[in-house]
Amino acid sequence: MKLLKPDLCLYCFQPISPNYTWRSVFLAQLNRQICSKCENQLERIMGTTCQICHRPKTETNKQYFKDDLCNDCIRWEESSKWRGTLTKNTSIYVYNDFMAELIAKFKYRGDYALAKIFAEDIQNILRSLQYDVIVPIPLSEERLYERGFNQAEALLIEAGLQPSNILERTHTEKQSKKSREERIHLPQVFKLSQIKPTTETITSKQIQTSKNQQAAPPTNSIKNKHILLVDDIYTTGSTLRHAAYILEQAGAKSIQSLTLARG
């Protein structure tokens, strides 16, 4: 009878009715993680967006755009310190109410399994990006202890990727409790990790891990490399830019970012 028991939605725990389509049947893509009702609430970012931060340009917010950049990004680019630090951000979903709930459940309430929902979309997006090293935004040790896992790393691992943990973070107040001004003028919270024994680099496409057992200095894996930073949400872009800044200083050729949602 197990054959007849349907899989349950990872989010709402209702049975998932298998969605048979030509592709799913003939290309054997049958693994669904969430039910159609939940899936329909995931809103993928489409249409025109800001060329840097991937904010969707809509009828209601188009006054905040100038050509194909949004005002926020224009302000970032005006600053000589931040100009070109983050070349481009890519986000998959719109940060709507459902997404907010989903991410909250995922990272604050520790529902690790939800990361599986995004695996396929992340894989697809990664295929279209050019990068040498994939770096998740780290948590501070205290925060990691509190949550049990790093959400950015979890997303990557569930998508079948090996992240390179070459950044470290000093403990501060939660980002979400801060204003934009505070965030931008934050002192640097990231630094390059010094004593990670397993520095693993991922080359794009081949998703191949070269296990350097020797403690290679992280600068080697950064210098002249294209780096992809990964986080769960892009809100102001401050966190990602701070991380990017560090990497830029360490000699990275370019830094892009991928986030699940665009706040």
Binding site: L4, K5, S17
Partner: peptide
């Protein structure tokens, strides 16, 4: 028949 036991059978199945 299967709905009697709350089993949802896809039409294609």
């Amino acid at each position: 028949f299967l709905s009697k036991w709350r089993m949802i059978l896809n039409s294609l199945d």
